[in-house]
């Protein structure tokens, strides 16, 4: 798998390897005979979805420097639209087919189509939200994106066909460990390759100094919108998988609290650090689960998890506003001490 192979073949081989590993894991994990494996499996899958969300938001917030508080909105668009397609169009068709390999195959084909369509609609929403961002400064944009997320939610609440306030139930359980982690892996690769390219450099330039970026021939408008479109597409796909895994959607899930949760992941990891987003998403998925038992020691069984969560966020910002890894990646943080050759020479103060 070297440079001598054509690019498409090289990537295909890597993809095949990744798929094989995932299939192995999917079956292997189910086979582990621990009590409550289904519970752990569920948390793992939710973790995969959270990683996808964090990595995708990091493209918008961390790389392009556009502070978005509307990620839950994009996720909701993807979740609801894909669920709508599956529930009203794909599932009835699948039910008519005889059970067997062909049905199984079509189920996964339908899932991919539904989820991709969800992602595309979310990307369209991202495009529309990205447009006003051209004229707005950071904190205004935060409010606009937050408002956008709320508008989406209010609209969902008013559409009876997708459950309105009751929630959307009866979505088939097509999503699983394999699909969630395939998308998660792809999201990481996409984000990583982007930031290593001229597109990613343009994102970073916009983040660092818009006026200078513009003077260097970068169409800042275009790249901001691009970041929004890519980020919201991935969020929409994650939402679609979430819908097909939990089988039930409720508008309350997509309140801006969810957006904040994702923002907290990105900030904890360090704005702009992909591995930071991944690590933070893992921590913040498991932490609330770990804190679940704290509730039992509290008077009246009240749940202090979110209180701890918010105190952590404040303390983190006050003590380490750059997040765990700052703008660097995991290996740069740990590899720095060993590798001090001329190219990575210690910066002059």
């Amino acid at each position: 798998m070297t440079k001598s192979l054509p690019w498409w073949l090289r990537d295909l081989l890597w993809l095949a390897l990744f798929v094989a590993v995932l299939v192995g894991l999917a079956y292997g994990l189910d086979a582990i005979p621990i009590v409550g494996m289904a519970y752990y499996n569920r948390i793992l899958v939710l973790m995969g979805i959270n990683i996808t969300l964090a990595v995708s938001l990091n493209i918008i917030n961390g790389h392009a420097g556009q502070f978005s508080l509307g990620h839950a909105g994009f996720m909701a668009v993807g979740a609801y639209f894909s669920a709508y397609l599956t529930f009203y169009h794909f599932a009835p068709r699948l039910d008519k087919m005889p059970a067997g390999t062909e049905q199984w195959l079509m189920q996964n084909v339908f899932l991919v189509i539904a989820v991709l369509c969800g992602g595309l609609l979310a990307a369209l929403a991202g495009y529309l939200v990205g447009l006003p961002s051209l004229r707005l400064r950071g904190d205004y944009l935060a409010i606009v994106t937050l408002g956008f997320g709320e508008i989406i939610r209010v609209f969902i609440l008013n559409i009876d066909k997708i459950g309105a306030a009751r929630g959307f139930s009866g979505i088939p359980h097509w999503g699983n460990f394999f699909w969630v982690f395939l998308v998660c892996g792809l999201a990481i690769v996409i984000s990583w390759r982007l930031v290593q390219s001229s597109v990613g450099r343009a994102f970073l330039a916009v983040r660092e100094d818009q006026v200078a970026a513009e003077a260097m021939g970068i169409d800042t408008t275009r790249y901001k919108v691009k970041a929004f479109v890519i980020g919201s597409f991935l969020a929409g796909v994650a939402g679609g998988l979430y819908a097909h895994y939990t089988m039930y959607l409720n508008p309350q899930t997509f309140m801006f609290v969810k957006s904040f949760e994702v923002v907290a992941m990105v900030v904890l990891g360090g704005l702009g650090s992909i591995s930071g987003s991944v690590v933070a998403a893992v921590i913040l998925t498991f932490l609330p689960e770990g804190l679940r038992s704290v509730k039992d020691y509290m008077p009246g069984g009240r749940d202090p998890r979110m209180v701890i969560y918010s105190i952590m966020l404040i303390v983190l910002m006050l003590t380490r506003p750059q997040g765990l890894f700052g703008r660097r990646e995991l290996w740069q943080v740990f590899g720095r001490k060993k590798k001090r050759d001329q190219s990575e020479a210690p910066p002059v103060q």
Partner: peptide
């Protein structure tokens, strides 16, 4: 610090009041 840092802290305080209030 960058303005984003205080914005996020403000969100944190907001959370603290909401969930602290619930608690």
């Amino acid at each position: 610090s960058p303005r984003i840092a205080s914005l996020i802290t403000a969100i944190g305080v907001s959370f603290l009041l909401e969930y602290g209030g619930q608690f």
